[in-house]
Design a protein around this nucleic acid. Structure first.
Length: 498
RNA sequence: GCAUCUGUAGCUCAGUUUGGCAGAGCAGCUGACUCUUAAUCAGCGGGUCUAGGGUUCGAGUCCCUACAGGUGUACCA
């Protein structure tokens, strides 16, 4: 399998020797660039009229040589343009250099813009300079216009190769590169939006002595000097709340979380989230923020709030539907479980083959029934509110409803995108909730929270009423770029070693 | 984790049904070509058919196991 590559590489190394023999360094330390290619493309008439000397740099992505002339295409990150090289134009010696160029090599072209006899806007080369020579055969994608439609030949489509060799994917599949540009734009937009509202961006520890803020199994590592085990964070929540205690009123963090769980089209072991906390705000404030972030980000990268996603058409225009978990269960099962009757709930679960975990109470069963019968019905954006207290150990209770909390999750196209609470700020209640989690952990729930004494101590000093929101950034980007696999929006997704 | 599909040249793929010389296009190499644009024309080279085992006179093809990936599903955001 590698043998042929070795042969081609050997041939290319021979070319390197020939280039060196001409007294030319194929990896020069500098180059001259007067224009990005897009500038020449966007101002064609000006550059044709001026006959201005230009120096452009990029990768050679097509090559059509014919005797003493040759055409090539030079591509930089902004655009691509045809290059016309004549032996008469660049001189015998430099034409030899051009002949030693291969597809995929980086080059600098000095010349002037002109129109070929066939009417193709091009740069007429006066000099070809090699800037970086490749020694491995690069896959070539060819393109042809048929009736205005671009038809592509020999595309680089092997999914495994695209993920493992992402640089080739970016190089050969412009539409995939565009996804990552949109990713950057969406994250930049989110930062600007929050900064404009007075939020400050912070960084909290990725390595933590205790993990918490979500229900998940962690990755563990070890610090040699301290002689102690540390966890990679599963959420940023508990540290950001310490900052609210410390007097910051609006904070957010965008960063990686790590969860030692299964991988599928919506889960990668490391993923990017944004969590934000706003003192003196509440659930309504967080709903408004969520709607605005998604709909405005969509306008930014799609120009509309009506977007395709998989088989669905999603309308992100605000306001989004709001419904409680119990209402939705009733809507889709006809059952009213608002009395939280454990016997009825467990009988219903048994009848419908829903697992009843060890130590589960009525609240957990309500959540299980919701997952089983409601989640996959939620296509258009829906704020699901009023989650059971039992599965929401960090959310404030709902006044007048001892079993419920002030919480929402946003579902779009059956997937969860965000999770928010009116944050619990009662230190005594918080301790009881975490101790209940610890009991679940003893009963075998590997994803239950731990009792974080330092976090509880912080809350005991007093914490203001606060709204908190977490959004799965990767999923948000999937939605806004119509990608149904998380691997398509993560540059280097986790893969098993080859 | 379970189920299922896939793995053939650098890339994209035929060939697997019904076992019988390892194929094509692009890319590469040699030659021709001063207006091509999937350039064209002539010729050449390139393979551990993912890996290992089995059945068979004979396996890319049939059987078993492993590895990697896709999809579905479980847990989860």
């Amino acid at each position: 399998m590698e043998q042929n590559v070795k042969q081609v590489t050997a041939l290319k190394k021979e070319k390197l020797k020939k280039i060196n023999a001409l007294g030319i360094n194929p990896y020069p330390t500098n180059c001259q660039r007067t224009h990005e290619i897009v500038e020449l493309i966007n101002n064609e008439e000006k550059y044709l009229a001026d006959k201005q000397f230009v120096q452009i740099t990029g990768r050679l992505t097509a090559m059509r040589r014919q005797g003493k002339i040759g055409f090539a295409v030079l591509t930089d990150s902004t655009a691509k343009i045809q290059i016309f090289v004549k032996k008469d134009g660049v001189g015998e010696e430099n034409y030899e250099v051009f002949k030693l160029c291969d597809l995929g090599d980086f080059a600098q072209i000095d010349g002037i813009c002109f129109m070929t006899e066939r009417g193709q806007y091009s740069v007429l080369a006066q000099k070809v300079t090699i800037l970086g020579k490749g020694i491995r055969p690069i896959p070539v994608v060819k393109e042809k216009e048929v009736d205005g439609q671009k038809v592509r030949y020999d595309e680089f489509t092997d999914i495994e190769l695209r993920y493992r060799k992402r640089y080739l994917d970016l190089l050969l599949n412009p539409e995939n590169k565009a996804t990552f540009i949109k990713r950057s734009e969406i994250i930049t937009f989110t930062r600007n939006y929050l900064n404009d509202q007075g939020f400050i961006e912070v960084e909290t520890p990725t390595l933590q002595p205790l993990y918490g803020g979500a229900n998940a199994r962690p990755f563990m590592t070890h610090h040699n000097t301290l002689g102690t085990d540390l966890y990679l964070r599963i959420a940023t929540e508990l540290y950001l709340k310490r900052l609210i205690v410390g007097g910051f009123e609006k904070v957010y963090e965008i960063g990686k979380n790590f969860r030692n769980e299964g991988m599928d089209r919506t889960h990668n072991p490391e993923f990017t989230s944004i969590e934000l906390y706003q003192a003196y705000s509440d659930l309504d404030g967080m709903m408004h923020l969520t709607e605005e972030l998604f709909s405005q980000a969509s306008l930014l990268v799609n120009g509309t709030t009506t977007i395709p996603f998989g088989d669905h058409e999603i309308e992100l225009k605000t306001p989004w539907r709001r419904a409680t978990m119990l209402e939705l269960i009733q809507e889709h099962t006809g059952e009213d479980f608002s009395d939280f009757d454990f016997e009825r709930l467990s009988a219903y679960c048994t009848k419908n083959h829903i697992e009843i975990p060890n130590g589960a109470g009525a609240g957990k069963l309500v959540a299980q029934i919701f997952e089983r019968f409601v989640e996959d019905k939620l296509i258009q954006p829906t704020f699901v509110t009023d989650h059971p207290k039992e599965i929401s150990p960090l959310a404030k209770g709902k006044p007048g409803h001892p079993e419920l909390t002030e919480r929402f999750e946003i579902f779009i196209a059956t997937n969860e995108y965000a999770n928010a609470f009116t944050e619990l700020n009662d230190p005594i209640d918080q301790r009881e909730r975490l101790e209940a989690q610890a009991k679940l952990k003893e009963l075998g729930d590997q994803e239950a929270n731990m009792v974080d004494e330092d976090f509880l101590e912080a809350m005991e000093y007093g914490m203001p009423p606060t709204g908190g929101l977490g959004i799965g950034i990767d999923r948000m980007i999937m939605l806004l770029t119509n990608n149904t696999s998380i691997k398509e929006v993560i540059l280097f997704p986790t893969m098993k070693p080859e």
